[in-house]
């Protein structure tokens, strides 16, 4: 039975409980001074990786948390390690916004360098909603993929993934190595406990740059405009039944 080496890419995004605001120039969502945390789907990925190890059905040799982005991304790598990842790899890129294809290409190189045989990704990140990276990575590696997983079981080399589709569930089976992307109902991510946060501080966190992988942050897409949705028309209040009737008449409803 082969040992499983898991790669879990995570992204630092605006906390989903924060109401996003479009910047003044209408070019992007305002990110300065806004609370950030780990992309919720990525939390599910980390949790699942750790659970695979805890279930002890297959030997999990390594769980590598990976992130590409500004220095602050290290915070979420530490969180990932506090949740149970063994080590972190941070590709520092301060300026450019990486696109799904660029990330997939980068991940391919990481997979090859780290001899990964299972990549668990969030199905999408909540900031750009692309839902592409996992699929692109599977294509680049020519590996089988199971997207939007709601249940993952591995026995030996065989991985069985249940995924929710319109009108029911679909069960897929494939052999490692493979790509899995996670969906809402897969698991319930744990809290990072204090002792584990302390331990995570001592876990190895490697820093690299895009250049180390022979890549650059080439842009293929251009954001033309970012706009808030049209505000909802507010309702009115009436004092009593008569008020309501006259209002309805006014609107031509009765």
């Amino acid at each position: 039975m082969s040992k499983v080496r898991i790669l879990v890419p995570v992204k630092r995004v605006i906390d989903y409980a924060v109401k996003p605001r479009v910047n003044k120039a209408n070019t992007a969502v305002e990110t300065t001074g806004v609370k950030h945390s780990m992309n919720p789907f990525d939390e599910l990925s980390i949790e699942e990786a750790v659970r695979l190890r805890e279930r002890k059905k297959v030997p999990v040799e390594d769980i590598l948390a990976f992130s590409a982005g500004p220095a602050k991304s290290q915070d979420i790598l530490r969180t990932a390690m506090a949740m149970g990842a063994d080590r972190g790899l941070h590709v520092v890129e301060e300026k450019a916004e990486l696109e799904p294809l660029g990330v997939a290409k980068l991940l391919k190189k990481v997979v090859e360098a780290e001899k990964t045989n299972l990549v668990i990704l969030g199905k999408q990140s909540i900031d750009d909603d692309a839902n592409q990276t996992g699929q692109m990575l599977a294509g680049l590696l020519n590996w089988p993929q199971a997207t939007q997983a709601s249940k993952v079981e591995i026995e030996g080399d065989t991985c069985t993934v249940t995924r929710e589709v319109d009108g029911g569930v679909e069960t897929l089976r494939a052999k490692l190595p493979m790509i899995i992307t996670t969906d809402l109902r897969l698991n319930e991510p744990r809290y990072a406990s204090l002792p584990n946060i302390m331990k995570a501080k001592k876990k190895p966190l490697e820093k690299k740059t895009l250049a180390d992988f022979g890549m650059d942050a080439e842009k293929r897409l251009k954001t033309v405009k970012v706009e808030e949705p049209a505000p909802r028309q507010g309702g009115g209040k009436v004092d009593n039944v008569d008020g309501m009737i006259s209002k309805l008449k006014e609107l031509g409803a009765i």
Binding site: I14, Y16, K19, P20, V22, A28, V29, P40, E97, Q124, I126, D127, D128, D129, L184, R185, N187, E188, P189, T223, V226, E227, E228, P229
Partner: peptide, 19 residues
């Protein structure tokens, strides 16, 4: 970048399901 809020309903479900 598409607006973030579009994912909010989905995430609300996530939170309900998860926590």
């Amino acid at each position: 970048m598409p607006p973030l809020h579009r994912t909010i309903p989905a995430l609300r479900r996530l939170r309900l399901a998860n926590t």
